[in-house]
């Protein structure tokens, strides 16, 4: 019960910030995909820069556990590309569709309906996917520092440097 309440509170905070950052707008999402407006990328990369420092700091102290998704080439690459194609048509992702509805963008309802149908279709296809696409190139639960053989703080430092450089470039280009 408490877990459900925490979920609700966390969602409210996240939804509030997504709306304040204008990330929920169709124009911002498609704007990023048409390389015209990088608002959603600014939000995502700022989130990641802060979260990765906090999570790995707590991880080093033994306070939190990681929850990694396996790197299955077939699933992640094929599924990722299929998702992208649908996202470019819908203009909302699963989380932002609910947020868009919250700020009155009722066209998100069509997308939410479509996504529920899509989830049902995937549930039917799952046994087949398990035997095919999901067997292609399973590298397990791996992290970038493991693959590179580097300490995670070196990787984090490098990624933050890259993020800040990208932000400077966005601002210079007015994206």
């Amino acid at each position: 019960m408490m877990t459900l309440l925490y979920g609700l509170i966390t969602g409210i905070l996240f939804g509030f910030l997504l709306q304040k950052g204008q990330v929920l707008r169709y124009d911002k999402q498609i704007g990023a995909l048409r390389l015209q407006d990088m608002t959603i990328l600014k939000f995502m990369l700022s989130h990641i820069a802060v979260a990765m420092v906090g999570i790995y700091f707590l991880y080093d102290l033994g306070i939190v556990k990681l929850s990694l998704k396996p790197m299955i080439l077939g699933g992640v690459v094929v599924g990722g590309l299929i998702f992208g194609i649908g996202w470019g048509l819908l203009g909302y992702c699963p989380g932002t569709s609910l947020g868009a509805l919250g700020e009155g963008r009722v066209d998100a309802l069509w997308g939410i309906g479509g996504m529920l149908v899509g989830a049902g279709i995937y549930a039917e296809a799952y046994p087949y996917m398990l035997k095919t696409v999901l067997t292609w190139g399973n590298y397990g639960k791996i992290t970038l520092p493991q693959v590179l053989g580097l300490n995670h703080w070196i990787v984090i430092f490098f990624l933050i440097f890259l993020t800040v450089s990208l932000f400077k470039w966005f601002e210079k280009k007015g994206l």
Partner: peptide, 8 residues
């Protein structure tokens, strides 16, 4: 778009 996105 929603159907395709969720399947993927």
């Amino acid at each position: 778009g929603g159907i395709i996105a969720m399947f993927g």
